Simulated scan of single mutants.
Amino acid sequence: MKALAVYCGSATPADPRYLALAREVGEELALRGIDVVYGGGRLGLMGAVAGGALAAGGRVIGVIPEALAGSEVANTDCTELHIVSNMHQRKQAFTDLSDGFVTIPGGVGTMDELWEAVSWAQLGYHTKPVGLLNAFGFYDHLIAFNRHMAKVGFVRPAHQGIILAADTLPDLLDRMAVYQPHRPIFAMARDEL
């Protein structure tokens, strides 16, 4: 994996562990020689991921929509900063520029990015690993909900392993490195659907 998209919040929670985690994620990826592809902002966890990677000598590729770049939240310290027209182009760029996805704590936008990466994997638009860093148990309920969707029958057995979850970044990166793509919906026979 030469580049990973990192999905995270642009907010700054009161609990300082979240900013520290984001900075550590950026730093660790840089130290492993993995480029960071992210939302291009300078605020919150986004800015901390980029700052951690840049401080460790890493490459940071930001992708930000024009509307956000124009409101002065764009991180001009990025190695590369791509300004796109809208959120759809931003998420497509994340997929095009990365070898996988790491989701750390975040809010609604982060969930949008995670679920789109999972949905695209199910369908077969990409075969890249989708990682979920469950630091501090932040995603315990989401992991349980994903299991519930599978148990009820809304996630096919072939797709139940798309989300790779781990509590630490080293464990998550190890799981992502050995990820074997599943059989996508586009390749399934009608009786498998």
Rank of each mutant, 00 (worst) to 15 (best):
F136V: 09
Q92E: 13
G52N: 08
Q180G: 11
G161L: 10
A144I: 05
A50Q: 01
N86T: 07
C78L: 10
G137Q: 12
G58P: 00
L97C: 13
L172P: 00
H126Q: 14
A150K: 12
G9I: 05
S119I: 06
V73L: 10
D140Q: 10
T76I: 08
A67V: 12
R42Q: 10
A150N: 03
G58K: 01
L173P: 04
M176C: 14
V37R: 00
T76G: 03
G107C: 14
M87D: 02
D112M: 09
K151C: 06
R175W: 03
A67L: 10
A93D: 09
G70Y: 04
G109C: 15
H126V: 06
I34H: 01
M111H: 12
E28N: 07
R183V: 15
V36G: 01
A144F: 01
P105H: 07
W115L: 15
P105Q: 07
L142N: 00
E66C: 04
V6G: 01
A121P: 08
F138T: 13
A53W: 06
P184E: 13
Q89G: 07
F186E: 08
L4K: 04
A11W: 01
L4C: 04
F94T: 10
A158G: 08
R32W: 12
V178K: 08
G131W: 13
R183W: 04
L4G: 02
L4E: 01
Y7F: 15
A50G: 02
E192I: 08
Q92T: 14
A48W: 05
G137M: 11
G70R: 12
V102C: 01
L193I: 13
N75P: 00
V63C: 02
G44A: 09
H88C: 12
V37H: 00
A22N: 06
A93P: 06
L43E: 07
G52Y: 14
M46N: 07
I162R: 02
V118I: 15
H159S: 09
A150S: 06
G137C: 11
G62M: 08
I143H: 00
A11R: 14
Q180E: 15
E116F: 08
C78T: 10
V37W: 01
E116D: 11
E72I: 02
P13F: 05
F136S: 14
G57Y: 06
T12Q: 11
L45F: 08
E24P: 02
G106I: 11
R175M: 10
G51N: 11
H126S: 07
R59P: 04
D77T: 13
G106H: 01
V25Y: 03
E24R: 13
A158S: 15
I163C: 00
D171A: 15
A5V: 09
H88E: 10
E113Y: 04
V118G: 09
T168P: 12
V130A: 01
E66T: 09
G137K: 13
I163A: 00
G100M: 15
G41T: 14
N75A: 09
H88Q: 15
D15E: 06
E192Y: 05
Y7C: 04
A20S: 10
S119M: 10
T103Q: 08
H182G: 10
G40F: 05
V63M: 07
G33H: 07
G70K: 13
K151I: 06
Q89Y: 07
K2E: 07
